[in-house]
């Protein structure tokens, strides 16, 4: 309650980040491109939100910049390059498929192929057959004990 009152007092004194009007939207086709590009750029002060979806002031300013660059006729790659030059690859919500970051895209496939290879090799490997057990040594014919057993059995 006290916090709410303090916040209200602070706002009443103008001690807050004002809502920015932003630039006027472009025509429908170009504005759709602005929004599509904005969806692929990361808001620097949010948690994984695009600048098209973030209400933060800096994201609004960045979307204005996208609008300005689209109006100047820049290509998508040029617009992404503008933000990467200032905020690094961090600015891109999807890592680029080139250089070191291409490993991010390749590794899952490579690991899958490696795993399948190991399974195939294991399945193809012939199981080792156990050596046949040695035949019991024949009892000597003149074993007196065996003779006694046979005799008992016949009775």
């Amino acid at each position: 309650m006290v916090l709410a009152l303090l916040a209200a007092l602070s706002l009443a004194q103008g001690d807050y980040a004002p809502g920015r009007a932003g630039t006027e939207p472009l025509d429908a086709a170009r504005e759709a491109r602005v929004q599509a590009l904005g969806k692929q750029l990361r808001c620097p002060v949010c948690q994984g939100t695009s600048i098209a979806d973030s209400p933060s002031s800096i994201a609004r300013a960045q979307l204005d910049k996208v609008r300005e660059l689209v109006a100047e006729g820049k290509t998508d790659d040029e617009i992404f390059a503008y933000f990467v030059a200032r905020y690094g690859d961090f600015a891109l919500l999807s890592p680029r498929k080139e250089g070191v970051t291409s490993l991010l895209w390749l590794m899952p496939g490579l690991m899958l192929i490696f795993g399948v290879l190991i399974i195939v090799l294991q399945v193809k490997k012939k199981p080792k057959t156990a050596a046949p057990a040695a035949a019991p040594a024949a009892a000597p014919a003149d074993d007196p004990f065996l003779e006694a057993v046979r005799k008992d059995l016949k009775q």
Binding site: T23, D64, K65, Y87
Partner: peptide
């Protein structure tokens, strides 16, 4: 007023 220069400099806050 529109943070144009701020974005050009890569400001995050």
């Amino acid at each position: 007023p529109k943070s144009t220069i701020a974005v050009d400099y890569g400001i995050t806050g």
